[in-house]
Nucleic acid binder design. Sequence first.
DNA 1: CCTATTAAAGACAAATATATCTTTAATATT
DNA 2: AATATTAAAGATATATTTGTCTTTAATAGG
Lengths: 150, 150
Amino acid sequence: MFSKSTEYALRAIIYLAQKSSVEHKIGITELAQAIDSPKSFTAKILQNLTRGNNLINSVTGPTGGFYLTDQAKKKSLLNVLTLLEDEGIITGCILGLKECSEKNPCPMHSEYKQIKPQLLDMLDQKTIAELASEMKDPRIVIHNIGKKKV
Amino acid sequence: MFSKSTEYALRAIIYLAQKSSVEHKIGITELAQAIDSPKSFTAKILQNLTRGNNLINSVTGPTGGFYLTDQAKKKSLLNVLTLLEDEGIITGCILGLKECSEKNPCPMHSEYKQIKPQLLDMLDQKTIAELASEMKDPRIVIHNIGKKKV
DNA sequence: CCTATTAAAGACAAATATATCTTTAATATT
DNA sequence: AATATTAAAGATATATTTGTCTTTAATAGG
């Protein structure tokens, strides 16, 4: 559904929403372990989200790390997807046509048109803080379970 | 949503459902033009779908080409996706977790769970023959419009 | 049988996505 | 000021996807 980059970004942000604050920043080592993602690659992804768009903040040096402000925690996954420029599910055509619209629809257009707003709702309804708070239930996780690294 | 390979395959199959039969086969040149896809790459994709799974048939030599049997035309896009092994939207987790289930759900699981069956329905309800027949309406297309090849 | 036409097969190339490693800059602590 | 710690930046490596090209095999028609 999404690229690895996007998946890691979403998981990282949910983790940061849950664990970080201005007072308590999270290092990339802890973060990557917590969401079960490749560390350096995840660092790159987060870097992109600290520049320009005020989604993720970071501070170098001891006690430094990544964190979300309360404002950032109020954003939705859809907001994040927009910043990641990975909105294909929302804007794209099932069959990959560049210009699939009411005027020139693909054969699946009318069907997908009914599902798209639900996907959009799903991604837009909850703030990442709300998603993170679901993780108080220990069954709900954002890492791969039962797979140990060698 | 899908890979290019999958998109080309779906478009090709819809075109073949519309235009081909045992009596009238379609050459790769016509097909690739009709669905606006790279010719050789599309040929590869179709080759994979002629082997084993009886979805697409082909014949070499003059008057040869690709075609669908009436039986094949009765399959759904979901059937095709299964043959293409590109069912991620159906089976996968939004956040990319390997084991996202009722027992260990991701924070988006309960939300996506409600949309997944609708996506599945969308892909399973219509036969590709039915999708193809929608194209009697000239507004409905499976090629990129207004983009001319150099 | 010969030729033209078509897909099959396989080698190759280019682009993109994913991942790692090293060096640099910032900063907290001493 | 010196040191340790952390992310930033950049170079590089690997894998996968996408795309092209050439050669081979099959087959229809003369």
